[in-house]
Nucleic acid binder design. Structure first.
Lengths: 254, 254
DNA sequence: CGCCTGGTTGAGAATCATCAACATCTGTGG
DNA sequence: CCACAGATGTTGATGATTCTCAACCAGGCG
């Protein structure tokens, strides 16, 4: 299935050839991220057949809500999505931010309903991958099966990184880590490693990192004063990436 | 493959029929936990054929180490295993405790090497499930494939629980949650909900919950004084489960 | 223009970490 | 079987990081 895109700004998906208005897994430039395993061409076509591309989500719209029946996982094509769950006493806990090329919704598999809600932080486009179709395809294509096992495993290790961050690191370390993580994910998409716009609010950042808004704000101001980062509300420029990595205690990337 | 067991104390695996010295997935009383999906009898036999049962691990022995090549996932049969990873600056971060019926090692799939180390907290027995065999089997048995997707998804939601705990909850809430979690997992195995022995040290608990040993010790003492829990070094009796749940902010179970 | 959300900054309070001393348990060897 | 050493756990005093409360500012949208 190759559908023609709407006229919205699907930044990533179309940069590869701005005049090409058809999107498919075969020509999506996120392929290398979304599908790190080299699928055979034929296999990509089969995947393409089950992927559904809907209209873009507006900022604030939900992709799905906690305890909705689980039907699909989603690949983010453009924009940014946050995943969050409600705690026992009704607070929100942000469990992840998802950028183009990343897959969201896999937490819904175990109980056949989503364990978290997913909400667009800005206008976003996603590819919907119905899970029962994906399961069928996986039994036919071992490569696809393996790929999904790997994606889920990846999600586990990402969560474990966050657990470590929350358990062991100070406010400054957590925030430096997040900035570096976003920078690295930008780099993967061939975007600037040092200059980007944060799609989420300070509140979301604090919520994700287990900090209050005030602490986030203070630390960002401090980084700004120290010349580590240029903070212009949501526009961020990393001025001293090594200095930040130093603070974040990162050996490699995160 | 049905092998005869060694003479070690495989508490759980053999209680179902203490005279039956053969262990297989078909007669293992943990089946309902380890394999929540009702596999057909034939399917269980096929699973059984790929499962390897080695000698028990002694306390302190490693099942695998971080960055070892990934080969297998493991079902805990008896005892208890802790998973941990090393932070950038060489500290230990405990990422999970695994009890009989639970599966460990799935974080190794994404990079073909384990993302954490697994160490026995006491004498433990495990069933080794070679992952490439499991992948093959999964392509043949959709039920098996689905089951493993679910197991991995389960691991993700468990991690997200921990993230929330670390991000939002006080020392008392974290410790109450852990006690309730262990209690619930005991109940699943038809063991006492209120009385058990903690297989891990206070240090491990603190490490897992993002607290220092001292804080763990103090909170446990406080719970003890308040009559919520009877703490006898590692022997724990939950005297007021509802009170604990109240502290832990749990609606249902955790 | 003014309201409302989101963000910043400050002062004081609280939780938990740190440092330190001591107690208890485990297991090993005499 | 006891004694001792090292590891593990407990308790106390002090201090630091982060939260809370509060005021204020900025920007976007009706």
């Amino acid at each position: 299935m190759v559908i023609s895109s709407t006229s919205t700004q699907l930044e990533d998906a179309q940069h590869s050839c701005p005049h090409n208005k058809t999107i498919s897994c075969g020509n999506c430039r996120l392929g290398a991220i979304c599908l790190p395993l080299a699928l055979e061409d034929d296999d990509v076509v089969k995947l393409d057949e089950i992927v559904q591309r809907g209209r873009p989500l507006q900022k604030g719209e939900h992709l799905y809500r906690e305890s909705d029946p689980f039907t699909s996982v989603y690949a983010v094509r453009s924009g940014a999505i946050k995943a969050y769950r409600l705690t026992g006493d009704g607070q929100e806990q942000v469990t992840g931010f998802y950028f183009p090329g990343e897959i969201i919704g896999m937490d819904g598999i175990s109980k056949d309903k989503y364990a978290s809600s997913a909400k667009a932080l800005e206008t976003s486009a996603v590819c919907e991958i119905p899970f029962n179709r994906l399961e069928e395809l996986s039994t036919q294509l071992p490569t696809m099966q393996r790929h999904f096992f790997q994606l889920m495993s990846q999600e586990i290790t990402t969560d474990q990184h966050l657990i470590t961050l929350l358990s062991k690191n100070s406010a400054e370390e957590r925030i430096a880590s997040l900035l570096i993580s976003i920078s690295a994910r930008n780099a993967r998409r061939k975007l600037s490693k040092t200059s980007f716009r944060l799609p989420m609010s300070r509140t979301d950042i604090g919520n994700y990192l287990g900090l209050t808004v005030e602490t986030v704000s203070r630390v960002m101001s401090r980084f700004n004063k120290q010349g580590l980062v240029d903070v212009e509300s949501k526009e961020i420029t990393l001025l001293d990436l090594d200095g930040l990595k130093d603070i974040a205690n990162v050996k490699t990337d995160f």
